[in-house]
């Protein structure tokens, strides 16, 4: 048990740093000398046109894609060196990566067991994302929005202090969007860090306090979001 959650959380805080990161797939240079830092305890919007290298960058942070050079570190170390990684970082990647034959609860249970987390976490995260009623339905019959919620539930299993989200608003209806916005606000309010890639500028503008914009694998702009409209800024630097 933690004596004082606030203090423990501060000690556990996982900063995100990308330094001179490069990745080429064959002849295609997906990420080119990219450097940025995500301030702890902020919601940072990660923006850029399609094919800018956002997903590749996030996957390098999560140890799924190997950088050609440079580094992408969480709390100073690459993902694969994190001790009990799901308790540090939660990730939402594609909405479709579930076995269609498993129920939501079984999927979560498998990840929970693999990560050595307490049994009560499955019910808790299902409740957090509002999927209790669908817990024992097969994922194959889920809508895109429900899959997004299940992905977020999976990310939250380890009670991480950092969330890395790739287009989490995909497939969410207006009510789902509002729910996600409220959820992320509350999450960041607890001092946690969020790095979120999205194309829905109006949505992210309401919650983000920091922005990283990339295009063609390179950094265009990075800094706090203050005053000027996000759409104007985005179109000016990446448009």
């Amino acid at each position: 048990m933690r004596d004082d959650p606030a203090i423990t959380d501060r000690r556990r805080m996982t900063s995100i740093r990308v330094h001179r990161l490069r990745k080429s797939f064959g002849k295609v240079l997906a990420v080119d000398d990219l450097s940025f830092t995500v301030p702890e305890g902020t919601i940072t919007a990660f923006l850029g046109p399609n094919g800018a290298g956002k997903t590749t960058t996030l996957r390098m942070l999560l140890g799924l894609v190997r950088p050609t050079s440079g580094e992408a570190v969480l709390g100073g170390v690459p993902y694969h060196e994190l001790d009990r990684p799901l308790e540090r970082v939660g990730a939402v990647l594609e909405a479709t990566s579930f076995h269609p034959g498993l129920t939501a609860a079984t999927h979560l249970e498998a990840v929970r067991i693999a990560a050595g987390l307490p049994a009560a976490r499955v019910a808790r995260v299902l409740e957090q994302v509002g999927l209790e009623a669908a817990a024992h339905r097969r994922v194959g019959g889920f809508s895109l929005g429900m899959r997004q919620r299940l992905a977020l539930a999976t990310a939250l299993l380890g009670e991480p202090d950092t969330l890395i989200l790739d287009e989490p608003a995909n497939g969410l209806d207006p009510a789902g969007m509002r729910w996600l916005r409220g959820f992320l606000r509350a999450y960041a309010h607890e001092g946690h860090t969020v790095l979120i890639s999205t194309h829905v500028l109006a949505e992210v503008e309401q919650i983000a306090d920091h922005v990283v914009i990339i295009a063609a694998g390179r950094l265009c702009w990075s800094g706090p979001l203050a005053g000027a409209g996000l759409e104007d800024l985005y179109l000016e630097v990446a448009g």
Partner: peptide
């Protein structure tokens, strides 16, 4: 095939 390897490798990067 189902892309669940992502969850497996996130839980166990080794």
């Amino acid at each position: 095939r189902h892309g669940t390897i992502t969850w497996s490798f996130l839980a166990s990067p080794r």
